[in-house]
């Protein structure tokens, strides 16, 4: 059991981006370019940056584009946004939503570039 601390409420939206510590090597290039300084270097070298100001994120995704380790950073839209991203499969009539528990198979086609 961890300690219970006296902390302010997490800001809403409270995450903005999520790091995978198994992939991220703490190089901080994302923190280096984040336009709003949402991300701060971790005091421990080699650890994932700290999401300090998730409430200032513009959700532009340039941290993900800057990152050289695919999968280390995931952009996480706030629920009040992802809850409105809904699609319907024409052939089956199924409904899907961004953030749903059992999403359909990813569409592997890359963007035109």
């Amino acid at each position: 059991m961890s300690e219970t601390y006296m902390l302010p409420n997490p800001p809403g939206p409270n995450r903005a981006v999520d790091f995978d510590p198994a992939i991220c090597n703490g190089c901080n290039s994302c923190a280096g370019i984040c336009r709003s300084d949402v991300l701060m270097p971790n005091p421990e070298k080699g650890k994932t940056p700290i999401v300090l100001y998730p409430d200032e994120c513009w959700y532009c995704g340039t941290c993900v584009l800057e990152c050289r380790r695919p999968g280390a950073i995931t952009l996480v839209h706030p629920l009040n946004q992802s809850v409105s991203v809904v699609w319907k499969r024409k052939a089956t009539g199924e409904y899907f939503r961004l953030g749903m528990k059992r999403p359909p198979t990813p569409n592997a086609r890359p963007p035109s570039s």
């Binding site: 959700y59 995704g61 952009l75 839209h77 899907f96 569409n107 592997a108």
Partner: peptide
């Protein structure tokens, strides 16, 4: 604000 926030996010979600 669409390559990662929309294209990648939505295609990954299927």
């Amino acid at each position: 604000r669409t390559r990662v926030p929309v294209y990648e996010t939505l295609t990954k979600a299927g």
